[in-house]
Design a protein around this nucleic acid. Structure first.
Lengths: 218, 218
DNA sequence: AGATGTGAAATTCTTCACAGCG
DNA sequence: CGCTGTGAAGAATTTCACATCT
């Protein structure tokens, strides 16, 4: 199956909403309800669910549990997977802590750090290795996805080493553009870009810009 | 002037590259060079520069300094601006530290935190106030942009208070979708979505997916 | 009546391709 | 020439609008 990137992002967001909806006891949901909670249009939700091949009923909408299952069958790996986090500074630490409380049975993390002070022990419940052990551990645990939370200067080298050890997908928090082979997935989370963008659009307050697909006011 | 969101993101990225190019002494740059460094096509670069109204010469390409100026005239506020960071946990701390080394004359930060242990002193060079002082300080310093690095449960309340105090643009790191008026800019930086997306596409290794606009291999 | 599912239209974003310049 | 600037084409994404079902 071939799901566009934007749709993958949205179904991931839908699932989080659905889990909380389910948690509150609601069994079924209409496209416009889910749309309202995520801040997109109802047509967008229906199109996305059509794309992933989930079908509802005009009378009752979509089954919350079934839809969660469907999304999980797409997003979750078939077996539990280990993700590598490189760099356990403030940011890495935040990611690790965040990691622990999500994906109980699906993803687990293993951390790498250059500072010897931090290695060799558990950090937020994860093994923290020296960066020198990166190749060994990544290969042993068959890591497919890695998160880069290292200084910009180190990022390219770490990325190369991860890819050489078998990693196929990267989320890069370092403020540099990395060179990777075309078949490696790379997502850049660029905080200065986000801030500069927010500052720019905040300044354009005057004009009627539809930034949020559905107003959602109040 | 009306610049699309994607273009704003890219010119922000271009500027960072241009600064480092300038730093290395290079005075002029061709669209294909900048494109290669950012991982987009040369046509994309030319289109973006056309969009912001910057013009080069077929003989020498674009002037690095002039282009930096042009981008800065779009992205930077006319006067130095204060940005609010709410939540000084691991993530907030990372953002604050990162903040200090960028935008020396353009943006400065002020932090807010609920934990009394952390308030009332300087953190990474920024004033750190109690969350109770949020309205007062945000209004006093005319804050337009805020970063939310608080737990999900607190995010909506903090966002409401920020907006009521005059903030027009938000970058939200909490994993919840917030309800804001249509004229407020909101960017959600959703780390679990990023990770689930990376895991999904890493798994699709088999197929020839052009995720990176230009291969950039090696 | 009020939903879903979905072709088709509309919109947005990217690339092509080439005239024209130095 | 090789590069910029740009109309036009092409892709991708979103929305419309309506047939259809309960």
């Amino acid at each position: 199956m071939d799901i566009p990137s934007r749709t993958v992002e949205r179904i991931s967001a839908y699932r989080r909403i659905l889990l909380s909806v389910q948690n509150s006891g609601q069994q079924r949901i209409f496209s416009h309800e889910l749309a309202g909670l995520e801040g997109v249009t109802a047509a967008q939700v229906r199109r996305d669910l059509m794309t992933i091949g989930y079908t509802g009923s005009p009378a009752h909408g979509y089954e919350v549990g079934g839809l969660i299952e469907k999304i999980s069958s797409i997003l979750d790996p078939s077996d539990s997977e280990v993700i590598a986090l490189v760099g356990v500074g403030h940011l890495g630490s935040a990611l690790l802590a965040y990691f622990q409380q999500r994906w109980p049975n699906v993803f687990s993390a293993v951390a790498f750090e250059a500072d010897p002070e931090l290695t060799g022990r558990k950090l937020h419940g994860c093994d923290c290795f020296s960066i020198e052990e990166l190749e060994t551990v990544v290969q042993e645990r068959r890591v497919n996805v890695a998160i880069l939370a290292v200084p910009a200067a180190a990022a390219q080298d770490v990325a190369d080493r991860l890819i050489n050890s078998g990693v196929r997908g990267l989320v890069n928090f370092a403020p540099v553009r990395l060179r990777v082979p075309a078949d490696i997935y790379m997502d850049n989370v660029d905080i200065s870009v986000s801030i500069e963008k927010a500052a720019y659009f905040a300044r354009q307050q005057g004009e009627a810009q539809t930034i949020n697909p559905t107003p959602l006011s109040q």
